[in-house]
Amino acid sequence: MTTALITGATAGIGAAFARRLAKDGHDLVLVARDTGRLQAAATELHDRHGVEVEVLAADLSEEDGISSVERRLTDGRTPVDLLVNNAGFGNKGRFLEVSMADELTMLKVHCEAVLRLTSAAVGGMKERGRGGVVNVASVAAFVPRGTYGASKAWVVQFTQGVARDLTGTGVRLMALCPGFVRTEFHERAGMGTDNIPGWMWLDADKLVTAALADLSRGKSLSVPDPRYKVLMGAVKLAPRGLLGGVTSRTGRKYGPQ
């Protein structure tokens, strides 16, 4: 029996990871800010799948929150074998319309927390000769889209770099880059979704199945849907200047700023 720790575990992609991993027999450590939702999720997963589920209420935009998760990841008595860094959010508005405090909070959650929690987890994994880390990024990492896209680009580059450094240790790292997923993400950010074409939406459970398959194959980057693979291929061929204009317009219409 192995243990997986998931941040942002009570909704969306994080909750989908929790459901799938519990179904597969993994014990869980669920991390989120809302204690009530954590306890409800833990009870449901334990009752349905018979796995042990810990809850850890932590706000990863705060020093105490990051530190508490670091401590759990370095607890050798009950080691974590899989870390899923999923916590994240979007800000609504163009640059300068979003407060600097909110921009810095995004960098703390998307970058600092991912850096510190990955570091806390992989030390013990390397000693044990096994383990995995999934850092949830976004296809926004591949287009010029302000602080959100920049933070997710950092996640991709960081994850792939560490994956190379740990080659041969038995520890796998993968950046997961989904497109639009039916979660609470846009609602929490106050973003409308009515104009997003239906074909662009992904199912969180199917996304997780594809992601775990890519992790088992040793991939360091997962874009888990043929539609988005095609789109990202087109992005690589598009002139940078043209791409910046297009993504600026579509980003304001469809996604986080």
Rank of each mutant, 00 (worst) to 15 (best):
M1E: 02
I6S: 07
T10E: 07
I13F: 03
G14I: 07
F17S: 05
A18H: 04
R19E: 14
A32K: 00
R33A: 01
Q39A: 12
Q39H: 03
A40L: 08
A40T: 04
A42D: 07
R48I: 04
A58Q: 02
S61H: 03
V69M: 04
E70A: 03
E70S: 07
E70H: 10
L73K: 04
V84F: 03
A87Y: 06
G88Q: 10
G90P: 07
R94D: 15
L96E: 15
L96P: 04
S99A: 14
A101T: 14
A101G: 02
A101E: 15
D102A: 12
M106K: 04
E112I: 10
A113H: 13
L117Y: 11
A120V: 05
V122C: 07
G124Y: 07
M125R: 14
K126P: 03
A137D: 02
A137G: 11
V139Y: 09
P144G: 06
A150D: 04
F158Y: 15
T159K: 03
T159G: 00
G161W: 13
V162H: 08
R164Y: 00
T167H: 14
R172G: 09
L173Y: 04
C177G: 00
P178H: 12
R182M: 13
T183I: 08
M191G: 03
G192R: 06
D194I: 01
N195V: 10
M200Y: 13
W201F: 13
D203T: 11
A204E: 04
V208N: 00
A210H: 12
S220M: 09
D225A: 14
R227M: 06
R227Q: 10
K229M: 11
K229T: 15
L231H: 08
R240W: 09
L242V: 15
L243K: 14
G245R: 15
S248Q: 11
S248N: 13
G255I: 07
